[in-house]
């Protein structure tokens, strides 16, 4: 274990990471160097980009453009769009399988999850889920795909070998963002309309619900799995939950209407996209201090796993 830890520390000192921030209003993606807190590239994509999924192994980032009904595929070497996939619905949430072979796409209005083969870039099937599927996340072993059904107030669990919905877990009102602990034992569903987060035991489906700020959207756990950071869109803040005690221990003021949030392991920092302010707030995860604000494009959303870790 010690050996493993020192290995990952060494790897981190070599690795760089980048945040791919979707800007709904300017129809582009701001690429932020997470160490320098600077935008290093701005990439034009489709209309109304919202969802993001990054793949270090493919060297690609997938962006859902809900208003042009397309997925943009960005090559991370050149930071240019190399493909545009037309999808038959309104793509919002995105998630990749751990081997990056499948891209899952939530179709907001058709109540479906589309499965895209990332080698052929074709939609190979669709799975009916609950109403208004939003956030998606795949378990670390790739076996389960979790879908937040915003208007059914539940999370669907899809078995990815059969592509069938295996169970549905009732959560709070209008779940939007989903996140998983690194060990996969806990699933976090952010319930927009009742200002709460559900912490779900992925083995037993038992859950506890914790009140946070006003109209929360998304969540991300710290590397050690002890804290959960939650964006509160209508209170312009991030709630910090102590996961073992299930209590909010801190509230950090960020920009107006924060949406997407990710933990960056390489820098031990939290990146928050502020939709209203066109900025990304950077929080030092070690002390919960806001340390930087990075100007992005218009109406930044960054919905999904938007940090790309690259090892050199």
């Amino acid at each position: 274990m010690l050996c493993f830890c020192s290995f990952s520390l060494a790897a981190n000192s070599w690795a760089g990471s980048y945040a791919y921030i979707t800007n709904q209003g300017s129809n582009d993606v701001s690429v932020i160097d997470t160490a320098a807190h600077q935008v290093v590239a701005t990439i034009e994509v489709g209309m109304g980009p919202v969802g993001v999924a990054t793949s270090a192994s493919l060297g690609q980032v997938f962006i859902s453009n809900v208003d042009s009904q397309t997925i943009s595929v960005i090559d991370t070497g050149s930071n240019q769009v190399i493909h545009e996939i037309a999808v038959p619905g309104s793509p919002v949430g995105l998630a990749l399988s751990p081997d990056s072979k499948k891209l899952y796409v939530a179709d907001w209005f058709a109540d479906k999850v589309l499965v895209v083969d990332t080698s052929t870039l074709s939609v190979e099937r669709s799975i009916s889920v609950g109403k208004a599927p939003a956030g998606l996340i795949v378990s670390q072993d790739g076996g389960s795909l979790y879908v937040a059904n915003r208007d059914s107030d539940d999370v669907a669990v899809i078995n990815t070998s059969t592509m069938q919905v295996e169970r549905r877990i009732a959560v709070g009102s209008h779940p939007f963002g989903l996140s998983l602990s690194r060990d996969g034992s806990k699933l976090f569903a952010v319930n927009v309309q009742d200002d709460s987060v559900s912490i779900i035991d992925t083995r037993t489906s038992q859950l506890t619900t914790i009140k946070v700020g006003d109209h929360p959207y998304c969540a991300t756990p710290s590397r050690d799995g002890k804290r959960l950071f939650v964006t509160n869109t209508q209170s312009a803040s991030v709630s910090v939950i102590d996961i073992p005690s299930r209590k909010v221990v801190n509230t950090i003021a960020v920009g107006e209407y924060p949406e997407g949030i990710n933990y960056d392991a390489a820098s031990d920092r939290i990146f928050v996209a502020n939709w209203f302010d066109d900025t990304v707030s950077v929080i030092d995860a070690s002390n919960n201090q806001l340390i930087a604000s990075v100007k992005t494009g218009s109406k930044s959303r960054a919905f999904g796993q938007f940090i790309l870790e690259t090892a050199h």
């Binding site: 709904q24 809900v66 208003d67 907001w108 209005f109």
Partner: peptide, 12 residues
């Protein structure tokens, strides 16, 4: 009254 549109709009 269920799902809202996919892209929020703003006026300031």
């Amino acid at each position: 009254a269920a799902a809202h549109g996919p892209s929020p709009q703003k006026v300031e």
